[in-house]
Write a protein that binds this DNA or RNA. Structure first.
Lengths: 235, 235
DNA sequence: AAGGTAAGGTCAACCCTGTTGGCATAAGAG
DNA sequence: CTCTTATGCCAACAGGGTTGACCTTACCTT
């Protein structure tokens, strides 16, 4: 690595780019989110981001080790925003539900960015803060460590996995205006009842439900499971 | 599109490539799976696949509209394999559990391919066959259509979402031998107890559990939920 | 069996991508 | 005020998907 990246905290000199803007990790990540929204999940390129920042593409390598490193920073930003829009109440079940929805919503607020990042563990500070919070809620509810870790694992993986999946269709819909509901109606509703009796019988219900996320339902299932464990540990 | 793709069924002439092999969608998809396994989830390129097939990269465009189209065909292949390794017994709960595990296992058998495809709905024939099967199991169990569609939605999305997530770490581990468990131990176990008391208290449990999939647990939660609905509908 | 049609393999070229080494310049330390 | 060096810029590299033109040969028709 000929050009070692300087940590944001240790950054001293702030030299403006040719177009006048002064860069920072924060500004770069924010601009990357905008570029992703405008150009789709595959539209974030070093050249395009450089142009959006008014800087040479290679300048990015002064702030991130590569596009992959930048991608993880974007993911951490979404995690951070999820935690910002959440406050503890003391009711573990309500808190966990709210946190799950906050994570899901934070990623879905930037579907194109979520597609890139949601299926990756970043190991960055704000993701770790979320993990700490979840474990705190579960242990605070009275679950034994082993059980808390199990529920935590299912919770975070489920939240991220659904965020990635749901963001995928959302981003796709916005990129190519195919209309997902239309796809369901056009593809699935046309299947003959002889070969696909079950799809044919439920085509209308499918078309109405599939464009929406199954995450809320999965989240409630997880909360039910956790509640059962909490009740058992209480006796 | 100057070169319209000929549907596989309508393909008449089978002209061997320069190196002698005769192409087909099946051979291309199979070779793509091999290339993915050998070169990682980002290692499937038109040029590399062409070389592996002993054909010019542009030949691929006679069979698929583009790399994206090929990607969806790969995903459908994995779905097809999942359904092949599954047989109905008549016990809805056992059948659904087995099918979920078959889907999950089929994708994880090709982690690099799964990363590319699991977060996408292909709308291709074998994916539709899986959907039809799931709905058949649930309706056969006696669930009302609206409930069956809801459980189906959660089931298929959960299975695909976890497949994508789990494949991600699996593919990553195989690509860059970083060792995911090591990452957990090195990053999370080092956090000071003052700032991260809950992670610190459960670090060992986390390191042991996080490298494994949370899908089995999530699947059982879904089956419990479905069983409750079946019981209610029976009364 | 001969001939025509076009499917399908090949080639060269296009513009895109991430990334890097060398260079220029100005910010901030002393 | 000077010096160091962080930081922005430039040019270039290898490799990516994709396409239009070309050629060859498998197959259908006669």
């Amino acid at each position: 690595m000929a050009k070692p990246v300087v940590r944001e905290a240790a950054r001293r000199r702030r030299r403006p780019t040719r177009s006048g803007t002064v860069l920072s990790e924060e500004i770069i990540v924010g601009t990357a989110l905008r570029v992703l929204r405008e150009h789709g999940s595959t539209g974030l390129t070093a050249r395009r981001l450089g142009a959006a920042l008014g800087a040479d593409p290679s300048t990015l390598y002064r702030y991130f080790a590569g596009m992959d490193d930048l991608t993880r920073a974007i993911g951490d930003e979404l995690m951070g925003r999820a935690l910002e829009g959440w406050t503890a109440t003391g009711d573990w079940r309500a808190d966990l539900r709210a946190l799950g929805r906050a994570i899901h919503a934070s990623y879905l607020a930037h579907p194109q960015a979520a597609v890139l990042t949601a299926s990756r563990v970043t190991g960055r500070p704000r993701e770790i803060a979320v993990d700490e919070t979840i474990l705190g809620i579960l242990r605070g509810a009275g679950l034994a460590d082993a059980v808390a870790v199990g529920v935590y694992h299912a919770f975070i993986d489920q939240s991220l996995a659904f965020a990635a999946l749901d963001a995928g269709s959302l981003a796709l819909t916005e990129e190519a205006r195919t209309g997902d509901e239309e796809m369901w109606r056009s593809t699935y509703a046309r299947l003959p009842a002889e070969s696909h009796p079950n799809i044919a019988a439920t085509a209308e219900l499918l078309a109405r439900r599939m464009p929406h996320s199954a995450y809320p339902m999965a989240l409630e299932m997880l909360l039910d499971h956790a509640a059962a464990r909490v009740a058992r540990s209480g006796t």
